[in-house]
Design a protein around this nucleic acid. Structure first.
Lengths: 182, 182
DNA sequence: TTATAATTTCAGAAATTACTGAAATTACTG
DNA sequence: CAGTAATTTCAGTAATTTCTGAAATTATAA
């Protein structure tokens, strides 16, 4: 592996990070490398940089493309494919959230709806049914909200986040405006 | 496994879900079972219900306790330990977020800070350094915000989420109040 | 204390997941 | 078109993770 020690540490860490989140280590490493590389990289360069087999890199890149996390481009006079990560890390975050929702949260909500339709109505089932309903409600609320946030412009989202707890004053209707606001 | 078909489906699904998020299948199943069970369960009951070995259940319960996701109690006249999941699913969500932050996000932020301190200042490193800084900034903003949200009362959070995009009007300062608001 | 019930530990087995090299396929060039 | 470069596929192997049963430990009861 031939990179500067700081990139190195970053790549290895994101590999570990990946495995803890159900993404395989080498896919994490490949993405970390693309993320910190200004120039697009081809598969051969990734293979060299990370010391993986060519075929493993090929599979990793496929995986990353299926997640929409990389862009492919061609350099003039070079028939190989070159890969990059999006420039804007907010785009990356948004894609990650969307794909995880599509792949994992949506199917879970379907399962819950089915279980709630088919489940018994007797006392024996009542508690479990209520719990599943609670989970479904929570998922609907949170994913719906993330959807809406994604449609806002970035500046607004940042402003909202920087507000922190301060948002309470905005969303809580007051009967009459206090004379001496804190 | 002896449960109603709806619980069954739920348990198996959450097991799969677990593995996709880096939590092992049986730990996911154990938690799903506790989540839909009104009465506290002891290890033996979990073993029977899920068809796992007693030792596997023991390890799974340990894991769940290290995540603070289960509560242990004792029934009068019974020396076995009985396990439950919190009643409020918002509590569960909050604990999950906190633990993941502590275990994975915080160490990543430390690594980034170190890499940013130690990294070279030459042109060669500049891009990677900027990218790591972007990632650190994003993580600090998002985790800081989640921290603040966690301190708000639940009602306020729900109100905020239900606002959706509507929050933009609240956080965006207008020079002068429009005469005909849209 | 001894007996026994409950739980945990842990080495090895089983299952799953990741990785490789060779072969096949696809894409490009002249 | 033939020749070659680039990429993908996939069967077999390696590595990792999960799971089990037996033994050890801990807790409670008599």
């Amino acid at each position: 592996m031939k990179t500067t020690p700081d990139k190195q540490a970053f790549i290895l860490h994101l590999g570990e990070m990946g495995s803890r989140w159900g993404i395989n280590r080498t896919v994490g490493q490949i993405y970390a490398l693309l993320y910190v590389s200004q120039a697009p990289l081809n598969a051969e360069q990734i293979t060299e940089a990370l010391g993986l087999s060519r075929s493993n890199v090929s599979m990793g890149l496929k995986e990353l493309q299926s997640w929409r996390l990389t862009r492919v481009q061609h350099l003039p006079g070079d028939r190989r494919e070159y890969f990059t990560a999006p420039d804007d890390i907010w785009d990356i975050l948004q894609i990650l959230v969307e794909e995880r929702r599509k792949r994992e949260i949506d199917p879970t909500m379907s399962m819950l709806r089915t279980a709630l339709m088919d489940g018994g109505t007797d006392d024996q089932s009542a508690y479990a049914q209520q719990r599943m309903q609670d989970m479904l409600d929570l998922m609907e609320l949170v994913t719906g909200w993330l959807n809406e946030l994604a449609e806002l412009d970035r500046k607004t989202v940042i402003k909202l986040m920087k507000l922190g707890r301060g948002v309470k004053k905005l969303v809580t209707p007051t009967r009459s405006r206090p004379r001496h606001p804190t």
